[in-house]
Design a protein around this nucleic acid. Structure first.
Length: 446
RNA sequence: CGGGGUGUGGCGCAGUCUGGUAGCGCAACGGCUUUGGGAGCCGUAGGUCGUUGGUUCGAAUCCAAUCGCCCCGACCA
């Protein structure tokens, strides 16, 4: 993408309203623009990051055998009256009346709608297990939106719902989701820690939240430092294996890890050695629930089991805060110059800076570079503008592409350009071919 | 919702207390010089001061109402 033809409205000065790094940097790098309190437009750069996150989520969901659908943002109130949540949910739910006087709501979550879809089509245990999910905009009329998209009222969420014939199957679905979420966050360059959680208005008996460590997080965390050493291993997991999923679940949940909501100070003090006790702040980026028949019973979502009995299905739901993740990733990956994107979620793989756009040789090298990068599936953002060099460097640092190729007459005289790492600043002087080779290695494309 | 702020060219702000008809920096545009880490000089353009009403000879400034936004608190992906 040529910067001269792109829409990248970066701000030189920090808008007064931005209090935390991610909000400040998202506004300055032209990723978002506020439309109203807690409601944002996503500009091209921000939209690209959302797209990267969605792609990773879809791939990991597919690996776990979950099926994508797309439900609407507006839902009929009647379904929520059926589950009993229309009155329970409170002021946080935005209620709407259409011209016919019909009562609608802008969905804060989708248990009722998906249960309605399920019950109309699935009648037998033979069609289970089934997990349906979508990535859709939600609206929760927060009392006080703040911190940019971190606590918006409108936000993009991946929400999934599993349907199983009995509790044991549903617990497997729960464990399977825990594993797939850990893999999803890992692919985004994040270390997310599962922590036992309250179930809140979703209801149910089993729930874990996923938290990313960040000083500006809204939750206070207490955990055993051993959990920071845990990995997922290098091999693929068999998601159909109850034992395999349960063992990952056990490994990740046997260490003490709680938020302030569920923290048990006595237990923490007695069972976690003092040298391993950690206290930190974190950002919640996802949550999983098992709630059994809470919705299937009142909404009559039943299947025939193996013995011919009609039984309510066991369900759980699972959410990833996609738009919030953008903020969380920035909180965990920035410095005083700007954002430092992890490669898998970067809006562009590499920035190409042309130091002399009016020099034909330099420009020819840049154009050729971009064509070849694109042929490798590595999207470049090509700064072909006639700004001064310093200004280009500063902008590129601000928007935080992980790698930068700098092309100017000085190094080109030796047949070289510069490949610079945004995170640590190390620079390689090398020929274009070698730079492309290094980048394809880094991004793991062939 | 309670408490505290705030609203002035695209962005960041001053001016409000003590009414006299709007200013600074950045950005934009033009010219010259400059050109490998946010250039310099000269010039140009852009605002009925959130909105409505009131007081006054006169309101960005005083009064009232209203709307928006931000911060602190109780709630949440």
């Amino acid at each position: 993408m040529r910067m001269s033809r792109y829409f990248l409205p970066v701000l030189r000065e920090t808008p007064a309203e931005a209090q935390i790094a991610s909000h400040r940097l998202m506004l300055r790098s032209g990723m978002i623009q506020q439309a109203s309190a807690g409601i944002y437009s996503w500009m091209p750069l921000g939209r690209r990051v959302l797209g990267k996150l969605e792609t990773i989520i879809h791939e990991e969901q597919a690996a776990a055998g979950h099926i994508p659908i797309l439900m609407p943002t507006l839902q009929p109130a009647a379904l929520w009256q059926e589950s009993g949540r229309y009155d329970d949910y409170g002021q946080e739910m935005l209620r709407i009346t259409d011209r016919q006087g019909r009562h609608l709501l802008y969905g804060p979550t989708n248990e009722e709608l998906v249960t309605d879809i399920f019950r109309g089509h699935v009648k037998s245990y033979r069609n289970l297990p089934l997990t349906l999910y979508h990535i859709q905009w939600k609206f929760r009329d927060e009392i006080r939106p703040r911190f940019g998209i971190m606590r918006g009222r409108e936000f993009l969420m991946k929400d999934g719902y599993n349907f199983d014939v009995d509790e044991a199957s549903a617990v497997h679905a729960y464990n399977r989701h825990l594993v797939s979420y850990l893999r999803t966050y890992q692919r985004m360059g994040l270390k997310a820690i599962p922590m036992r959680a309250d179930t809140g208005p979703i209801g149910g008996k089993l729930s874990h939240e996923f938290l990313v460590l960040a000083d500006t997080g809204e939750s206070e965390l207490f955990f055993d430092s051993n959990i920071l050493e845990l990995g997922l291993g290098d091999s693929d997991i068999d998601y159909d294996s109850r034992e395999a999923c349960a063992s990952v679940f056990d490994r990740w949940t046997q260490q003490y890890a709680r938020t302030d909501e569920t923290h048990d100070p006595d237990h923490f003090a007695r069972h976690v050695p003092a040298v391993r006790q950690r206290r930190s702040r974190g950002i919640e980026v996802g949550q999983i629930f098992y709630f059994g028949t809470k919705y299937s019973e009142p909404m009559d979502a039943c299947v025939n089991d193996a013995s011919g009995q009609r039984v309510p299905v066991h369900m759980g739901s699972h959410g990833i805060g996609v738009s919030r993740l953008v903020g969380a990733i920035i909180e965990a990956n920035h410095d005083d110059k700007g954002i430092v994107w992890p490669e898998p979620v970067a809006p562009f793989a590499v920035g190409v800076i042309n130091l002399k756009p009016d020099n034909e040789e330099v420009s020819a090298v840049c154009e050729d570079l971009c064509v070849r990068l694109e042929a490798q599936g590595l999207e470049p953002l090509y700064d072909d503008t006639d700004d001064r060099a310093g200004s280009k460097f500063t902008t590129m640092d601000l928007i935080g592409l992980p790698w930068r190729l700098t092309v100017g007459p000085r190094s080109l005289a030796a047949g070289e350009l510069e490949l610079t790492c945004r995170r640590d600043g190390r620079t390689f002087n090398c020929a274009p071919e070698e730079a492309i080779g290094r980048l394809t290695d880094i991004y793991g494309v062939k």
